[in-house]
Amino acid sequence: MKPAPFRLETPRSLGECVEFLTEHGDEAKILAGGQSLVPLMNLRLAQPSVLLDIGGLEALDFVEKNEQSFRIGAVTRLRDLERDANVAESQPLLAEALPYIGHIQIRNRTTVGGSIAHADPAAELPAVLLACGGTIKSVGPNGEREIPANNFFESYFSTNLEEDEVIAEIELPRWKPACGWSIQEVSRRHGDFSLIGIACRVSCDEEGVVTEAAAAFFGVGATPSLAESASSLVGTKADDEALRQVAEATTAELDPPTDIHVSADYRKQVGGALARRSLSIAYQRATRSIT
């Protein structure tokens, strides 16, 4: 199928983009990498009358690391992140997640901001952002706004962004020492959206006792969501019994949907197993860095 008619605008800055958004309201859509929007347009499920192509805004294409934080510009392409030594070194969870996202041709176009703004609940990046405690920086008519990831995702494909706001960058906290990570997902084929997945981060002290555990599920409901159950690992050494309890609590906690691929039951059971598996790997990685 072919897309319905629209007019393409190419804002020269984020400010200009916001002006267009203010002018056109919900008639306008931001086009970044286009890897989610254009399939919907080709199927005529999305028919914006104005497209604002910000993919070429060089000011939003950057990776910047400093003492406190790690910032990524909104139109930075995922393939560029994959190749970026800073990402591999400083953001291992993000680095591990990238190859799961689509395929080469997709990652060559997909932007970080686009993936976050699209807010597909089965997508990896929103969950990584959540597990890392990241922040979304947006720009709107009233200036800049910082939104913590756990307040950002509101429902299926819907976020805290106003109609006239656009993502400028995301910020991830610097990775602490003695911190491990893992991303685990079940998808029907390589590169597909996950049936269910989990991105997690575990920190421990010098004795190997867990001091912090965060796990974000994706593919389990309307938004990526932090698993309450993971926090029960704190104070343990993530032994088999502790992990078994987390798995059980996770299965009880999840309230996922059924779709044409798998049932809610499947997601609950497998969610528990993935929690156990991923937290165990993350813990081992955390302890490896203290010895």
Partner: peptide
Amino acid sequence: LFEHLAYDSNGQILTTSLLDYLVPVSTD
């Protein structure tokens, strides 16, 4: 492993894209 055209009970077809109707890729 994969191929299944699904309908709901009203006769609406649920698998009209290659995200829903799956065929094997190289890694399978």
